[in-house]
Every structure is written in C-alpha cells, then in structure tokens.
Design a protein around this nucleic acid. Sequence first.
DNA 1: GTGTCGGCCGTCTGCCGACAA
DNA 2: TTGTCGGCAGACGGCCGACAC
Lengths: 404, 404
Amino acid sequence: MRLSSSSSSSTTNNGFDAQPEEGEKKCLNSELWHACAGPLVWLPQLGSRVVYFPQGHSEQVVASTNKEVDGAIPNYPGLPAQLICQLHNVTMHADVETDEVYAQMTLQPLSPQEQKDICLLPSELGTPSKQPTNYFCKTLTASDTSTHGGFSVPRRAAEKVFPPLDYSLTPPCQELMAKDLHGNEWKFRHIFRGQPKRHLLTTGWSVFVSAKRLVAGDSVIFIWNENNQLLLGIRRANRPQTFMPSSVLSSDSMHIGLLAAAAHAAATNSRFTIFYNPRASPSEFVIPLAKYAKAVYHTRVSVGMRFRMLFETEESSVRRYMGTITGISDLDPVRWPNSHWRSVKVGWDESTAGERQPRVSLWEIEPLTTFPMYPSPFSLRLKRPWPSGLPSYPGFKDGDMNMN
Amino acid sequence: MRLSSSSSSSTTNNGFDAQPEEGEKKCLNSELWHACAGPLVWLPQLGSRVVYFPQGHSEQVVASTNKEVDGAIPNYPGLPAQLICQLHNVTMHADVETDEVYAQMTLQPLSPQEQKDICLLPSELGTPSKQPTNYFCKTLTASDTSTHGGFSVPRRAAEKVFPPLDYSLTPPCQELMAKDLHGNEWKFRHIFRGQPKRHLLTTGWSVFVSAKRLVAGDSVIFIWNENNQLLLGIRRANRPQTFMPSSVLSSDSMHIGLLAAAAHAAATNSRFTIFYNPRASPSEFVIPLAKYAKAVYHTRVSVGMRFRMLFETEESSVRRYMGTITGISDLDPVRWPNSHWRSVKVGWDESTAGERQPRVSLWEIEPLTTFPMYPSPFSLRLKRPWPSGLPSYPGFKDGDMNMN
DNA sequence: GTGTCGGCCGTCTGCCGACAA
DNA sequence: TTGTCGGCAGACGGCCGACAC
C-alpha cells in the first residue's frame, strides 16, 4: 500500500499527472509542497554535493518522538559530525493521513579521493525554491471550522487568487475546484454576499474541514498557479505530536539506527536514505556544500558581532530578527567535538525572543559586518580545525566561487 | 505529551487508578490488554530470563512498515541470532489514536559469567496470561457501524457479560458504562426490544463508533471483570497499515537501529528497549528461556514428524491445526547461521492453509511424539551446535526442570 | 473588513418494529 | 437468532443577514 503521495524534484513536471500509472508514484505538486513547507525551506539540488549533520537529524527524531535521549547512545568513532555527500535522489512526500509534508533524500558520502577533488560549482550554493506568488495563507478561526457556517475569505486574498466573480449576478457566485497535495479535488461554492458584502466559501467547505480534521488554529493555503489551477494545502498548528510511531521502535533504537546507517554508509561509501520533515525539524540538517563552505570558511565571526536571521511569520512570509553573538563553542564537546552544528551562541534583541533558539549554525545567520566574498589566503586560515576524517580544503578554486 | 496509556505488569493493580498522579503513567487494565492482544499472547514474567531474536524483531518492523529490506543491511558479527537476556521491565501500552496494543520491554543481555551460571527456575517457563472468562468478541456488521442504527448484541453474549435486565420494565433497559484501554468511559443504553426481542445498544453507540473510527469488519470486546466493571476494547480488521511512521526514519535505518541497539547492548551487557506489537508481529520474538530450552534441547524433532500448533480464531478463541515437518534448516544461512528462528519447514494438513506460515520455530509447535521431559545424556546430544558466543549448557539442573 | 451570532429550513441521525435469512 | 430495511420524529448542519469590534 502506498502511504504517501510523492514526487521527484528531478522531474520538470509542473502539474499533476493526469493518469498516474499503476505502481508508479503519484506526482506531487512542487509549488504546493513548498508553500506548505514554508518560505525558508529549500531542498538541495539533485546531483549536488551537500553536508549532512547527524546531530541535526537526531534533533528531528527528538522533536518527532518527543522523547529525550538517555545517555546510552553509543559513540560512532568512525562517524564525523558532518558528512559531505552526493545527493542522488530527493523526493517530496505528504503523509496520507495528516498531509504533513516531508522529503526523502538518498545520500552517498564522498570517497576520500572525491573529497580531495572537491571543486565547487556555482549552482551548488543552492537556489531558493520558487515560492508561488499568487497565493494566500489564512489561519482558521472558530467560525471557519465550526459546523455552523462556512469559510470567510479575506477580501484581498479572494481578489488576488480566486478567479474574478461576475458581479452582475445576484448574488455573485461561482464554483471553485481545488487540488490538494495528493491530487484529490475539492469543490467549493464561492459566494459574495452579506451586509457588509464579503467573500465566503459555503457548500463543500465543511466536508473539507472534517475530512482533513482541521481545527481552529490550523492554516489553509490557496494557490493560483500559472496553469490556472487552484491548489489547496494545509498546515496544522503546532499541537503536540500525534503522528509518532511509538509502537514500532524505541526512540533510542531510532537514534542508534540513524547514526549506524550514516556510519555504515560513510565507512563503505554507500548510499543511505533519510527523511527530512521541514516543519517538525528544528533546523535543516542537509545543507548545500557551497553554502556550508561559504559560511564556515569565508565568513569570520566573533563574540559581540551583530547578525540577523530569517524567521517565518504566521502569515507564511518572512521577517528578520536581530541578535548578537555571545559565544562560539561545541554544542556537544564529548560526543561531537569540532562540530559546526549550532556552534554559535546568540542573544536576541527582542524580549519576546524566548522561543527563538539560543544556539544557531553559521550558515543560518547573516553577520552584519561582511568580509570579501572571494577567498584570500587570510580568510582561509581557519579558527577551528577542519573536522577529523575530512581532507583539508585544497581543491577550493577561486574561480568557481561565484556567490553573489 | 503522553502518547499512550500504559501499565507495568509488575504491579498487582487489578483495575484503574482512580486518580493517576500528574506526570505518572496512567494505569492500563491488564485483562483488557490481553483480551485485545489475543488468547495466544503471553508476556514474559518480570525479572525472568528470556531469549530475544533480532530476526523476529526485524520481521515486526517489516510488517509494520510494509517495506521489504534491501540487501544493504550490514552484518553485526558480534550479534548472535539469539540473546539470552534478563527482563528488567515490561509495560503494556495502547496507542492513543488507534487503541492498538503493544508492550515495551527492557532487556539486559546476560554477561558471560551469568550465562555460565544459568539455572532454570520452574517459574520461568512462562505462565499463560489469564484470559478473562466473562467476555465476548463480536465482529461489527454494516448495520452495527451505520449511522442508521445501533449495535445488535448477540443474545448469549448479552446474557453472559451484561448485568441482567429488569424484565418487568417495558421495554427492559438499563444504562451501561464501559471503560476502554485508556480509562475513558463510554455510556450506552442497553435495551431489549423488537419483534422478535433482541438486545441492542442504542444511545451512545454511534458516538463510540465515530470516536474510534470503527468500520464494518472491526471487532469489539466486552469484558465483565471480577470488580463488576465493564471493559471495552477494540480490534481493528487487518487493513493495510495506516500507523506507519514513514516520515520519521527510513525502514533501513530502523532495521539497522534495531540490530545496532541489540549489538551494543550485547557487547556492553547494558539494557536496551524494544516494542512488541502482538497483532502486527508475525511471531513472538521474546521467548521465556525455559520454554526455548525445553523446545530446543529437550524435544527431538525430525523430518516427517507430525505436530500441532495453536492458532487464534475469528471469535478470539483457540484452535489447533495439524501439520508435518518437511525440513529443518536455517532461515537465513548467510546472515543468521545456526539460528533456531523459524528453523522448521512445515506442511499443513488443511487445504485452506495458504495463509499459515511455511516456517515455524520449535517452541511454537507440539510434536505428537513426545520424549521424556527430564534430560538424559542422550537427549543432551544436540543435533545442532550451540550457537557461537553462547556457553554450553552445563548449568541445567535436573531438579529445576518441572515443566508439566 | 471580518468574526460571531440568531433565525430558519432541510437533511440526516437515530429509534422503532417488520421481515427475512 | 440477528442483519437489514422502511418509517418517522427530532437534532443538528448549514445558509442567510444582523451586528459589533
């Protein structure tokens, strides 16, 4: 049985397959996936080199299982804190039950020889995934989810993303068809009525709410794409995890499995598979190699330095928060010495910053004092040693770094 | 957040905690758990020695994730096909979403010294868990689950497990309160009416059906226990897995995690935790040591020998099927040489046996030709070598074996 | 501009015995 | 003995504008 809809990002398919073949994976709309994942989520490019962080992967499992790890997790001496990998496959998925978006990636650690020959391509910095322009995201109110009525569409939203109504009708109304991540179609009656006049979705709305089990606080996303299709995604509020597989494997075993799978792949230069859940994971843990290299080797940070960092707003747009670097140290000096994962301790300017993490990674922030983009002998003198097991960085050629 | 109700089988609590303390696990009714798990499911006794089979554990993950394992799973040379362990903890759980029952066990592999000192206690053979006597199990019909009506209670079932109605009333009826695995109470109107007269659950029934998302084919279990409480459990039909954690960890990583966790525990004689899901797992993979030893060292089997084996019926009772041993060999000679897991190839007498497994383990069957219970020098001559990494069996004392 | 409510109508839930398997 | 159905009454779903923030 297929448990999720999926789509390979390597295809250039822009819509849905009209008739997916039996036994083949259904195609999943990339625009909608990214809209649901959020504006800050990028997926690395197929075939590119990436850096994989077991620590970050571990954090995702912690967040997903909501269980702290006890101290019994063995060390994997052969597993460095970061693995440079080739990205062989990346597919977008959505949970059939919850519509939760996630990505599956197949990674292959580079051989020592390949690591020596590293030579960054401009394209490997990672390009932000194209966010749709004609869309809106609304957090559902009690009235929206109650059985008593329909969905109140914000006026600007309706005018921007829905087809224009024929205002000569009394009342003006039309039928909308929207496709969700799995390709299912939902029909809504869109009407403009009331005193004062407003846009509403009536017939069909409550079916959608109950089928998706939406509650007040969850959000819906409507997209009008370039193929004149209406797409419809959902984002659940951050209620406590309910999708946890508590009855399959202990969270300790999951942690061990993740580490052992990566360690085995690293030792044999073979492929391994991971799942990245952008809305459950505290941070991305598969980073384009060039982005990592730029942040770690071509940006100099120090205590006291000011920086800014992007965060997602409730309306699914982006804003910057300012902060100051208060320290630079290993997050876990015993288990993961010399790791760049969350190596920067920070303080946030705004007092409401209680929920922003106290530790970030170098590639997540923009220091306000910038240094020359192109590497110089000076900037290549590292403050911290190159992690053991990885080569030094001779193959980094100036001409290949084109990062602005 | 607590994701499942649970109860330690080490407590002697026979009912529900009236007021579970904050932060403490709710107590889960053992009778009801066993009724939902089925008549063939035993849980090993707390503190006893058990044999753990990574192969069986692996089979459970395969069944749960519905995905075959590719060949990439590394060997764990230090991990034998069976581990003798001390059972430090065993707790019963039920999934909050699905009510699916499962058990959590904490195992500690015995040290080499402890393995030398093995001396079986009579109690360690494993005692069948007491199945409730006053109960019934009914598979729901289309009428039972439709919104059009209530639940038709089979006459014998109602007379056996529900409190007697006052037949002087017209119509005779009463209110029933039943507790599910999580301790939630459900209220039903029990009425005896119609022409011909029959027992029905009306008011309250449809709330239960929709809350538990029951469909025709699922089963309900009502128990009247010795504390005069009515307990109510559910067993879903074997529809394709829906609880799968596809977005958390790849099934390969899960397999590796399971093996690595056991291997690490075996190497360091430290504890590890596993989940046993009796209705998802093809076979039990944590076996009382004495049961294992009796089957492997004190029962002689050969090709052509007749045997019988217990199976669960649809009505949650037990029946025996007969078969003939057709071969004895390793299930996976490469990865798990000298393993007793499913080492017996069998043929079944009845032609409808298509769904019964072609390979079973020695402790699952009862050979029809029995040999003396007490070990003799003759019966101790093993047909197969004692698995490497385990001691020979000198500590087996005659006086301690009291197995009938 | 939009969240919630009272009002009102229609559909579907849910209780009943009939009937047949 | 019990699964399904037609009949029927009442509850709730769901569409409407009023109204207030």
